[in-house]
């Protein structure tokens, strides 16, 4: 045990101009211009990308902004869910992991 807490991970969404986002009934299509890859995603991914804007944010910030806008159930695992989605989005290249500012 090192005794030091791991630093909080920060994220920044891909530039809006690099993404074409098209809702398609219950799904949303995201065409990523830089990679040429089409992603088919479900909620809350489009909402996460939207509220991140171009800011450098943590999972906690994202959770807070989502709560401000949407009537979210305050479930204890909500933060973990957002954290997981952000990690997945960074693997897809739609979100960038940023060293703490």
């Amino acid at each position: 045990m090192s005794g030091t807490a791991s630093p909080i991970q920060h994220y920044r969404a891909e530039k809006a101009g690099e993404l074409i986002i098209q809702p398609l009934d219950i799904m949303t299509l995201i065409y990523h211009r830089r990679s040429g890859i089409t992603h088919i995603v479900a909620d809350p991914v489009p909402q996460i990308l939207e509220i991140m804007k171009q800011d450098i944010v943590t999972a906690g910030d994202v959770m807070q902004r989502l709560t401000d806008i949407f009537d979210l159930e305050n479930r204890p695992d909500s933060g973990a869910v957002i954290s997981e989605r952000l990690k997945e989005l960074s693997l897809l290249g739609l979100v960038e992991m940023i060293d703490a500012p």
């Binding site: 398609l24 009934d25 219950i26 799904m27 299509l29 040429g36 089409t38 088919i40």
Partner: peptide, 17 residues
């Protein structure tokens, strides 16, 4: 669902990518 239609058509297209 439209999402499934989209996915199946990307698979049915030879030049989509």
């Amino acid at each position: 669902d439209a999402g499934e239609v989209f996915m199946r058509l990307t698979q049915a297209s030879t030049n989509y990518v």
